[in-house]
Design a protein around this nucleic acid. Structure first.
Length: 459
RNA sequence: GGGCGGUUCGUAUAGUGGCAAUUACACCUGACUGUAAAUCAGGCGCUUCACAGCUACGCAGGUUCGAGUCCUGCACCGCCCA
């Protein structure tokens, strides 16, 4: 069985649907990886992650090396057992910390000299050390240690970084072979992915891609993006890389991104993505909502009189139930428990209607042009204090099925830990649903429409 | 009736001669992209492009170049003694 199988390609773009076969199960692509830097996606359990549709999580070499230390995780039987996540795990190499902890580290040929933020001691993370640690963690996808400059991009610095990344990659491969192929690793099925650098300079990206291919990698990550550059620069970088990587290899876009970035990245041939946005912003009170949500009839508390004509015809002034049966077959009053819901959302209402039946049924709706896309809200604002509607009418997450905006705002205002849990679940659900929508769109040949319509509609 | 303390920007507070005036909360705005982030930055009397003007620390007077700050009276609140 090939490592990566492409099951459907989009005729209008480079997007494709596929499956990555790992030692801990399959990943349906395009996929999003929730980030669990220290062996936990902040505030949610692995069971919840799986339930909401995550198939793989990302953990971090640098952080786990520092604490609790990879030998301890090895003793625990590997990271899968340690954190009780049975699916695939992707580990970052520590390469990103080369960038993000710029003030307390020094890049050298040997590796990166870090001053640990926990106890102040200094250690060198070398390409070999990064492999050793990731081998002890037993992740399914390991990354080579890479070097990359921040933004703004500078040609000479970027040229150095692709050269250093190549030299480090050679060392990483040797170490990887020593451990994984010739040794007795905790996860013999671990795969090492190469990383392409080169900022947004096409010639450097091409060179770096060719370097990685020549070193024999089967799978690749595009790095050095999502460091503050505009969206156009990010896409320029992606476009400069993809043609020089084998078409049938899985490609990860590191650290990306917004929902918009992801849709655009998929269209350019990227298969997997990881980003802190859904989880971090959830903790900061920003929630992602489907653009479709804004064209649905609003509940009376939001729009008192003179609602849309459609609403009055159907409802005859009656207050529609907040949590109607049709949303998921479970009413608010009857309560909710995760075990009662079928494991394979989304409900039909979440799915975009098939392309041929789309406009006819929606024609009377004034805003029917918005069929995809998203907007965000800051739930902490006072205007949501007395808003007793769900965060997103179209969402089937625990938060949206069970609680109101007013309640969530209250939880944030009072500093209840439940606030960040609920918000995190919602945003992750949004992202994971988005990936499912993307896969479905590619599968049924309307991904082109989706890309065209998909925008950030936040006011 | 007597004594003492208090009254400051939504709330709670700091401020005893140079103050448009502290801090916290609240509120508003903006960030957040391979997580040193349940975080960070800015605003928060009015008019403004303003280092410009106006109006402001319970009320009314007074002292002073200058008063939230000192003095007198009043109002209200709190505590204590009768």
């Amino acid at each position: 069985m090939p490592y990566f199988e492409i099951t459907k390609s989009d005729p209008q773009s480079k997007a494709r649907v596929g499956v990555i076969h790992t030692a801990h199960g399959d990943i349906n692509t395009p996929a999003f990886l929730p980030i669990g830097t220290k062996g936990a996606v902040k505030s949610v359990t692995t069971e919840e992650l799986k339930f909401w549709g995550a198939e793989i999580v990302l953990a971090n070499t640098y952080h786990l090396w520092q604490r609790p230390g990879d030998p301890l995780i090895y003793k625990a039987g590997g990271l899968h057992k340690f954190m009780n996540w049975k699916g695939p795990i992707f580990t970052d190499s520590g390469g990103f910390q080369v960038f993000s902890l710029a003030k307390m580290r020094k890049t050298m040929e040997a590796g990166v000299l870090f001053q640990f933020d926990l106890d102040g001691r200094t250690e060198i993370l070398s390409p070999e050390k990064s492999i050793d640690i990731q081998a002890n963690l037993g992740s399914d996808i390991a990354l080579i240690l890479d070097d990359f400059p921040g933004y703004p991009f500078e040609y000479d610095r970027s040229k150095e970084s692709i050269a250093l990344t190549k030299r480090w990659a050679e060392r990483a491969i040797k170490e990887f072979q020593k451990i994984i192929i010739d040794g007795d690793p905790i996860n013999p099925g671990q795969k090492l992915w190469g990383i392409v650098q080169g900022a947004s300079f096409p010639d450097l990206r091409k060179q770096s891609a060719e370097d990685m291919v020549s070193l024999g990698f089967e799978a690749f990550a595009v790095g050095g993006v999502a460091v503050g550059e505009p969206h156009s620069e990010m896409m320029k970088a992606v476009e400069a890389v993809i043609p020089y990587l084998p078409e049938n290899s899985p490609k990860h876009l590191l650290g990306v991104g917004t929902p918009f970035d992801i849709v655009q990245g998929v269209a350019r041939g990227c298969d997997t993505f990881d980003c802190v946005i859904p989880t971090r912003e959830a903790r900061h009170g920003r929630l992602y909502i489907s653009a479709k949500n804004i064209q649905l009839p609003l509940t009376p508390s939001l729009k008192k009189e003179g609602g849309s004509p459609q609403l009055s015809e159907e409802g005859q002034g009656k207050t529609p139930p907040l949590f109607s049966k049709e949303r998921d077959g479970e009413s608010f009053a009857e309560g909710y428990s995760t075990t009662d819901i079928k494991l394979d959302p989304p409900s039909p209402r979440l799915r975009r209607t098939a392309p041929d039946s789309k406009s006819e049924s929606d024609d009377n709706n004034q805003s029917s042009s918005i069929v995809e896309g998203y907007s965000t809200i800051d739930i902490r604002l006072e205007k949501y204090k007395e808003d007793f509607t769900p965060v997103d009418n179209t969402c089937d997450c625990y938060l949206c099925l069970n609680h109101t905006k007013g309640y969530l705002r209250h939880l944030f205002a009072t500093g209840e830990p439940l606030a960040i849990r609920l918000a995190t679940m919602h945003n992750l659900r949004f992202y994971l649903n988005l990936m499912k929508k993307i896969r479905t769109a590619i599968q049924y040949d309307y991904f082109g429409d989706m890309v065209r319509d998909f925008k950030n509609y936040t006011d």
